[in-house]
Write a protein that binds this DNA or RNA. Structure first.
Length: 109
DNA sequence: GCCATGGCTAGTA
DNA sequence: GCCATGGCTAGTA
């Protein structure tokens, strides 16, 4: 596994329940601010094997990018963790976005 | 050539 | 809405 991939996996696993992060955020935390799309690839290929909390990853606008059935599943999983969605389906980032280790491990503020 | 992105710009209201 | 980005995949040669 590439170092970036390994770090990204580590970051994704660190996201607490009830919080969300963006693709770009994970990439930046893993050392490559322009690696958002690599994060997509990692989620698509390693979620199963690494048991990643893939549903806690959303886009920079607070929206769910995963299309189709997966998107439905993602909404359901987030709701189950207390992450509420606006009427337009987006997450209130100011409230639920995780800022990294040691910055609000708990639940929503 | 595709895409589970993201940032920046026009152009409307 | 446009386009830079980056890695992968299908599909041709």
């Amino acid at each position: 596994m590439e170092p970036f991939t390994q770090r990204a996996v580590h970051v994704i696993k660190a996201v607490p329940p009830g919080r969300v992060v963006t693709y770009g955020q994970i990439a930046a935390m893993a050392g490559d601010p322009r690696g958002a799309r690599q994060v997509v690839r990692i989620l698509a290929t390693l979620s199963d094997a690494e048991n990643l909390p893939w549903h806690r990853v959303i886009n920079a606008k607070g929206g769910i990018s995963l299309p189709g059935k997966g998107g439905q599943e993602q909404r359901a999983r987030l709701a189950a963790e207390g992450v509420t969605l606006r009427a337009d389906g987006t997450v209130e980032l100011a409230r639920f976005q995780w800022r990294g280790p040691g910055t609000g491990e708990q639940r929503e503020p």
